[in-house]
């Protein structure tokens, strides 16, 4: 392992180990050693988040751990992003709108999906929770999103997911906007029933599905 690889590994480890303080200095040192910021983000921070995601899928890490890993990742991003070349800073990322549908009260799962998609290079527009049906569509239009992610933990709001898909259709946005749904009460069968493009069982699955649906095979983060 050469010096650069060792630094990348340290960055990645700091994300996995939820060290949001240590990672700041590691990131600065990485830049000072003359390495490109983009590699640091992809090979260090994003790599760490992917490892954390894998640990979550193996039930070694829990929702709370992923949140803290992402704190470390964002702390590292804060140091590395300013050093990206201008064209990378201005590169257009795929945009996604995410939110918990109307009348819902839980958003831990939604926050995880947002973090993991951000890690994968999406520009995320988070509408929060208890979001009215029309707001999803308005936001998707406004930011020219290619992806809408709908989450719910409550069955009472499931039906609103179908209304959002229908409204996207009415607005002739269904060809350009993919819809992924998730949350405890919904299923792949329900996704098919309401005409969504897919159902993701957890945050890691959501990333894989988003990339597949949009034809993005490699990380697009810049």
């Amino acid at each position: 392992m050469n010096e650069r690889e060792a630094r990348l590994r340290q960055l990645s480890d700091s994300v996995v180990n939820m060290d949001d303080e240590g990672i700041v200095e590691l990131s600065r040192n990485y830049i000072q050693a003359g390495h490109p910021a983009l590699d640091g983000i992809l090979g260090g921070l994003v790599d760490g988040m992917s490892r954390a995601g894998a640990l979550y899928e193996e039930e070694e890490y829990f929702v709370s751990d992923l949140l803290l890993c992402s704190d470390a990742m964002y702390a590292g991003l804060g140091e590395l992003t300013p050093h990206l070349p201008e064209e990378a800073k201005n590169a257009r990322k795929p945009r996604a709108v995410i939110g918990v549908v109307e009348g819902d009260t839980h958003d831990i799962g939604k926050n995880l999906v947002k973090i993991m998609l951000e890690t994968a290079g999406f520009e995320m527009h988070d509408l929060g929770r208890d979001v009215p049906v029309a707001d999803f569509v308005a936001k998707a239009k406004e930011v020219e999103a290619s992806l809408v992610c709908l989450s719910t933990l409550m069955t009472t709001t499931m039906t609103n997911m179908g209304r959002i898909v229908a409204l996207l259709e009415q607005e002739n946005l269904r060809d350009t906007v993919k819809v992924i749904i998730g949350g405890a009460p919904v299923s792949a069968a329900f996704a098919r029933k309401i005409g969504a493009d897919g159902y993701a069982g957890n945050a890691v699955e959501a990333v894989g599905m988003a990339k597949r649906l949009l034809g993005l095979e490699t990380p697009v983060l810049a």
Binding site: E59, F62, I108
Partner: peptide
């Protein structure tokens, strides 16, 4: 829930 926090926590 083990979905949220580890058994250790």
């Amino acid at each position: 829930s083990c979905t949220v926090v580890s058994p250790a926590a």
